[in-house]
Amino acid sequence: MSSYLLLLFALVLFSLLAVVFRNMLLAALSLGAASVALTLILFALSAPWAAAFELSVCAGLITVLFVSAVSMIRKEELFLKEGRARFALLPFFLLLFGIGFWFFGDRLAVALRGMPGLVGEQAGVGVLLWSVRSHDLVGQLCIILAGVLVIKAFFGRGRD
């Protein structure tokens, strides 16, 4: 249990660092580290397929994309001063909210729990994906196609 708590803490910490770091490269890498933490959390929650996808896609692919984008941008542009003064109070409220949730989240959390009498499923992930949620697959196909077309529209040949 304590290792699980450590992973959760790591997730929040790296995400926070990703928001705070001035250097965009470090921020992108920090986001990657957060993804790794999430992967381990997903493994712990007995969701190995989701964990594998998260690792390869988020921790891997997205971090690579970010780093390559950062490399295309000149150094000076990357170190902008963030205008955080206006919103300085927000993290304070977040802290308050967090503490409040910790103590009073009892009632809310019990409320959030779902129906107890559900039938647990027997099917494996593959079967589920291909039969029950086949329309999501059509959707995935469409979005990949859309992504390809968009990249082609942005960077294709025939552009100036």
């Binding site: 397929w49 996808f53 779902g114 992930v125 949620r133 995935q140």
Partner: peptide, 16 residues
């Protein structure tokens, strides 16, 4: 709620 595999398929699609 016991439906880990459904949740996984949703998560996978969402990641894509």
């Amino acid at each position: 709620i016991g439906k880990v595999n459904t949740a996984q398929t949703l998560a996978i699609t969402m990641i894509v």
